[in-house]
């Protein structure tokens, strides 16, 4: 059994511009646990993931986030990553001319990890995740399909071996096979490396594959209910309306494609 870690979010509040999006989030994830945060569009799901990772443009107005004894909110994104946090992006960014190998090598070198066997590790993970080997030398995410982008994110996660991973709407743009492969790899990481997971999603279909230990319902920037996996099943039947969240399937989900917080 490897070391136990915790990611503790206490009273987290954040604004985008003058608008309050997160209104006091309390949550603790421990090594090896899978927590799901479910919520309708506009509930603050993506804001939460970006605030945790430290994306510029969000103002934290209250609360704290600790990874063990490390105060994450006082650190820039790259130091949060070095502390052991990883974000699987909803929309992985294209970086022309920079390959997966280049990026992971730089990440290893920045932290003084030996990159001697890195290429072999990347190859192994790419095979395990069904990521086409022919894409390994290509520019990150450039002309990748939705499924390839997510598998690529998972190769990075598997090689970097963070303590905690935030999966931001990992099911968007994934077909069933890819969703299963990605979920299986996350599950293996929770077992093999004691990865702690915070999976943020709108739909319960991800949770059928991912099998969370805890499910939290996020409405208008607050966690309004927490429970076991049965909560996800219940949500599937009743929707978010019961919790005061408007089931806004008609709202254009495209808004978040342009980087606007959903």
């Amino acid at each position: 059994m490897s070391e136990q870690h915790f990611l503790r979010i206490t009273g987290l509040k954040a604004n985008v511009g003058s608008k309050e999006i997160l209104r006091g989030i309390n949550l603790e994830v421990r090594s090896g646990e899978v927590h799901a945060i479910m919520g309708p569009n506009g509930s603050g799901k993506s804001t939460l993931s970006h605030v945790l990772m430290g994306k510029p443009g969000y103002q934290v107005t209250g609360g704290s986030v600790y990874l063990d004894e490390i105060d994450l909110l006082g650190l820039p994104a790259w130091k949060r990553a070095q502390a052991g946090l990883f974000l699987v992006s909803q929309y992985p960014i294209e970086v022309p001319g920079v390959s997966l190998d280049d990026a992971l090598r730089a990440a290893f070198e920045t932290t003084g990890r030996s990159a001697e066997n890195l290429h072999q590790e990347i190859l192994g993970e790419a095979r395990r995740l069904g990521f086409p080997l022919s894409l390994l030398g290509r520019s990150l995410n450039v002309d990748f399909s939705g499924g390839e982008k997510k598998r690529n994110e998972m190769v990075q996660l598997a090689v970097l071996k963070p303590k905690f991973a935030i999966l931001d709407e990992i099911d968007s743009g994934l077909d069933i096979d890819a969703l299963r492969d990605v979920s299986r790899r996350v599950e293996q990481a929770t077992n093999e490396d004691q990865l702690g997971v915070l999976a943020i999603t709108h739909y319960s279909r991800l949770l059928k594959e991912l099998r969370p230990d805890r499910v939290h319902v996020l409405i208008k920037g607050e966690i309004v209910a927490s429970g076991g996996p049965e909560l996800a099943e219940q949500l599937e039947k009743t929707g978010y309306a019961e919790y005061g969240g408007v089931e806004d399937e008609t709202e254009p989900v495209g808004a978040s494609i342009f980087g606007l917080p959903s």
Partner: peptide
């Protein structure tokens, strides 16, 4: 590009190295 910068930084790479990677990629492309 800010998004490229943030994406690579979120992998634990320091900002100066990220810039060098992106500029290197800009040319090696």
């Amino acid at each position: 590009d800010e998004d490229q910068q943030y994406y690579l930084e979120s992998r634990g790479i320091d900002p100066d190295t990220v810039q060098r990677l992106i500029v290197g990629g800009f040319f090696s492309e």
